[in-house]
Write a protein that binds this DNA or RNA. Structure first.
Lengths: 117, 117
DNA sequence: CAGCATCCTGCGTGATACTG
DNA sequence: CAGTATCACGCAGGATGCTG
């Protein structure tokens, strides 16, 4: 057998508020810290801040799981890019399936409820 | 537009340790409380207990989101069955995609790590 | 059998301030 | 610009005991 529960493993991999969205946003190419950040803020109605500490933890986790790759250009002012690894790209269709399902089966009211929190 | 982020909505829907697995286990037909419970314990290496409070919360959430349906036979001793709604059934392929991805891209070591916690 | 009530703990997330 | 450091808090989830 492979293992007891791939679903639990997957949930762990993408746990956290932003991991799935980060991977999704990276599918069109590498992005920098602030680009991802503002991309995440877009769509959040409450327009809250995202603590940088939260984001860096998401990236560390995503990097450790091998879904994204961090490239530091080592210049001043700092320039760092994040991009999908092959493994990261392989998960995009799964996210697409999730989005597709959400679009078909989640009502606007449910989405609004979430956006409004 | 439909809404800002179906992914976030989906994550909310299936948040929690057992929701995805419960839905997955119900795809072959209705199950009773204890059946689901032991089904969930199977595959947990640490063989911890699952607090009934946790399970009932999962079910209430799943019922409220319209993914499962609760049928109380109103007999003594109690008999209650849970089954998938149409919406619940519609999400099964998504879980299948997740499992499929997990089987292909998650190493055993990662799975063991999770099972062993 | 299928839960509910209560207490407790860890962790994810947010807010704020500071740095190379 | 791209983070790290520190504090605070809510809530998921576990443990235990009781019930219709």
């Amino acid at each position: 057998m492979k293992h007891s529960c791939p679903v639990a493993a997957f949930q762990k991999l993408i746990s956290g508020k932003y991991k799935l969205r980060i991977v999704w946003d990276l599918q069109d190419g590498p992005q920098r810290y602030s680009e991802i950040r503002s991309g995440l803020l877009r769509g959040l109605v409450g327009t809250r801040e995202i603590a940088p500490r939260v984001l860096s933890r998401e990236w560390k986790a995503l990097t450790q799981s091998g879904l994204i790759d961090r490239k530091d250009y080592g210049v001043v002012p700092p320039k760092v890019e994040y991009r999908l690894t092959r493994k990261g790209k392989s998960i995009v269709p799964v996210i697409a399936a999730i989005r597709n399902w959400g679009d078909r089966h989640l009502s606007d009211s449910e989405a609004v409820k979430i956006a409004a929190e």
